[in-house]
Amino acid sequence: MLAAIPFPNLSPEIFTLSLGSFEFSLRWYALAYIAGLGFAWAFARWLVQRPGLWPAGQAPMTAAQVEDFMTWAVLGVVLGGRLGFVLFYQPAYYLAHPAEILMVWQGGMAFHGGFLGVVVAAVIFVRRNGLPWLSTGDLIAISVPIGLMLGRLANFINAELWGRPTDVPWGVIFPGAAAQACGDPCVRHPSQLYQAGLEGFALFAVLVFVALRLRGFLKPGLIMGLFVAGYGAARVIVEGFRQPDAQFITPDNPLGQVFLGLTMGQLLSVPMLLIGVSLAKWAARR
Rank of each mutant, 00 (worst) to 15 (best):
I101E: 02
I101W: 00
L102D: 00
M103Q: 04
M103L: 04
V104K: 00
V104E: 01
V104R: 03
Q106P: 01
G107H: 04
G108M: 02
G108W: 03
M109Q: 02
F111D: 03
H112W: 02
G114P: 01
F115R: 06
F115G: 03
F115W: 08
L116F: 05
L116E: 02
L116M: 09
V118H: 00
V118N: 03
V119D: 03
V119G: 06
V120L: 14
A121R: 08
A122T: 08
A122D: 01
A122K: 00
I124Y: 15
I124N: 12
F125W: 12
V126F: 03
V126S: 07
V126Y: 02
N129H: 15
G130V: 08
G130R: 14
L131F: 03
L131E: 01
W133R: 06
W133M: 08
W133H: 07
L134C: 06
L134M: 12
T136C: 09
G137I: 05
G137Y: 08
D138E: 06
D138T: 02
D138C: 07
L139N: 08
I140M: 10
A141H: 06
A141M: 07
A141S: 15
S143P: 11
S143H: 02
P145A: 13
G147S: 10
G147Q: 09
L148Q: 06
L148P: 00
L148W: 05
M149C: 12
L150E: 05
L150I: 08
L150R: 10
G151N: 01
R152S: 11
R152M: 12
R152W: 09
L153A: 10
A154I: 05
A154Q: 00
N155C: 11
F156D: 07
F156T: 07
F156S: 05
I157E: 07
N158I: 00
N158D: 11
E160M: 04
E160A: 04
L161K: 11
G163R: 05
G163D: 07
R164C: 07
T166C: 13
T166M: 12
D167A: 14
D167H: 14
V168I: 14
V168Q: 15
V168C: 09
P169I: 08
P169K: 12
P169N: 12
W170P: 14
W170N: 14
G171W: 11
G171S: 14
G171C: 13
I173G: 07
F174Q: 08
P175C: 13
P175V: 12
G176A: 14
G176L: 14
G176P: 11
A177Y: 13
A177R: 15
A178T: 13
A178L: 13
A179N: 14
A179C: 15
Q180N: 15
A181W: 12
A181V: 13
